[in-house]
């Protein structure tokens, strides 16, 4: 697979022809719509709900419907940062955040290590095998996520498939306890989010110019040198995109640790759930959510900076 040598830089350097300019003007209104639509979508479905959550986080719990004090009472503004101060006084919140970040980071790394070779093989496979392999990556999405987690429960039960096979083979004497452990949480998260790692990696790898790797090999570079100096840097946007698609949702993950995890895999999503449901403390839960957004956004900004620096 070779790309035409001319493409990127040279096309832009030609002076625009009148026809293209006309097309550009036509595109002006169209472009405005293209920009406005996502903006509208984000403000309705992200910014507005987030502001509601932020407003709740400044209130106090109250026995009412809804169960919190409004931001503006009879004496005007009555919000305060008490809930955020409370998050700092109790070590539970910090340790649950750190645990979530740790689990998300390890899961991302594992997904990268497993997903990269898979994406590489898919990207270098000839058609039609490539299409089949890609299909297999996407296939699990055809079943509900919850069902797949329950299937994992069935596999990892003490009298489940894995344990019965291992004990039949005589590998183990007593059944392994796999459910309700951090191990199960890693299995669950890596399994669930692997396609989100593979697809962007595949997209980056399939786009890369194979002739560059060939040139490096011709100049005497070994297979590993070619990989680390040519292939990997070229696929870095895919690595970053895939890592973000795994890391960000895993930080806030609730279902997987709740169903598969045990006492030592407490993540911030469960703490939020407890504050919201068990304690009926919506303002505290809202402040946990606001802080969680911060925890997610900071690594994201960092990653973007890494990519832009290249």
């Amino acid at each position: 697979m070779t790309a035409p040598l001319s493409s990127p830089g040279t096309a832009g350097s030609h002076p625009p022809t009148p026809a293209r300019r006309a097309g550009g003007r036509q595109g002006g209104g169209f472009r405005l719509i293209i920009v406005l639509l996502p903006l509208l979508f984000l403000s309705v479905f992200f910014a507005a709900p987030f502001l509601v959550v932020a407003a709740i986080s400044l209130g106090d719990p109250m026995l009412a419907r809804p169960p919190y004090t409004p931001l503006f009472g009879p004496d005007g503004f009555q919000g305060d940062l008490e809930n955020y101060a409370f998050l700092l006084t109790d070590s539970l919140y910090l340790s649950a955040y750190l645990n979530a970040v740790k689990i998300a980071a390890v899961a991302t790394l594992l997904a990268l290590l497993i997903g990269y070779p898979m994406a590489y093989v898919i990207a270098t496979s000839p058609e039609p095998r490539r299409a089949v392999l890609l299909m297999l990556v996407v296939l699990p999405f055809w079943t509900s996520f919850l069902l797949r987690v329950y299937a994992l429960i069935g596999l990892m039960n003490t009298n489940g498939l894995i344990n019965s096979v291992l004990s039949t083979l005589g590998v183990i004497d007593a059944p392994l306890v796999m459910r309700q452990t951090v191990f199960a949480v890693y299995v669950g998260t890596v399994y669930t989010y692997l396609p989100f790692m593979i697809l962007p990696l595949y997209a980056a790898l399939v786009r890369r110019d194979e002739s560059l790797a060939e040139a490096a090999a011709d100049l005497g570079a070994g297979a590993w040198t070619v990989f680390f100096t040519v292939t990997l840097p070229l696929s870095l946007p895919g690595v970053v995109a895939g890592s973000m698609l795994v890391f960000i949702p895993v930080i806030g993950e609730y279902v997987i640790p709740a169903l598969l995890g045990g006492p030592d895999s407490l993540m911030i999503g469960q703490v939020l759930w407890n504050a919201f449901f068990s304690a009926r403390d919506w303002p505290l839960a809202a402040s946990v959510a606001v802080v969680m957004l911060g925890v997610v956004v900071l690594p994201l900004l960092f990653l973007r900076r890494v990519v832009e620096a290249r």
């Binding site: 539970l92 030592d264 407490l266 403390d281």
Partner: peptide
């Protein structure tokens, strides 16, 4: 009441997770 709720929830989290 909501004050005791916070205590109970917090106690419960400690019971469940040791934290």
């Amino acid at each position: 009441d909501s004050r005791l709720d916070r205590t109970v929830t917090r106690t419960w989290t400690r019971v469940k997770t040791g934290q």
